[in-house]
Amino acid sequence: MTTSDRFQSVTTSIAESAMTSHIAEPATAPLTPATAASFPGSSRTETFMGRPVTIEIRTPLPARELTPLMDDAFAWLRWAEDTFSPAKEDSQISRLNRGLTLKQIPELIEVLHRCDELSESTGGWFDARIKGVTDPSGYVKGWALERLSRALLQAGAGDHRITAGNDVRVRGSHAPGRRWRVPVRDPRTGKIRRTVLAHDLGIATSGGSRVLDPHTGEVRDTLGSVTVIGPDLGLADAYATAMYAMGPIQARRFANELAAKGCYETLIVLHDGQELTTPGFATYNDRRARLAG
Rank of each mutant, 00 (worst) to 15 (best):
D159Y: 09
E146T: 03
G217A: 08
G142S: 04
R169V: 06
Q92G: 01
T216Q: 09
A198D: 04
P176Y: 03
Y284W: 13
V133K: 15
R44P: 06
R169K: 11
I93A: 01
A27N: 12
R169N: 05
R253Q: 10
T12N: 02
R193Y: 12
L201C: 12
P40V: 04
G177A: 03
F254R: 10
E120Y: 10
L100I: 06
A236F: 04
A157Y: 07
S85P: 03
V269E: 13
L223M: 09
D72N: 14
R290W: 05
F126Q: 04
A29Y: 06
I162M: 08
R171L: 15
P62W: 07
A15E: 10
T134P: 01
T11H: 08
D82R: 06
W143T: 01
T195P: 02
L276C: 04
P68D: 13
D90G: 00
S4M: 09
F7W: 00
V226P: 10
G132H: 03
I203K: 08
F84V: 01
A73I: 01
R210E: 02
R288Q: 15
P279F: 07
E146Q: 15
E257Q: 13
A128H: 14
R6N: 07
T32V: 04
A292P: 07
D200C: 06
A24H: 10
P26T: 06
E275A: 12
V10F: 02
L102D: 03
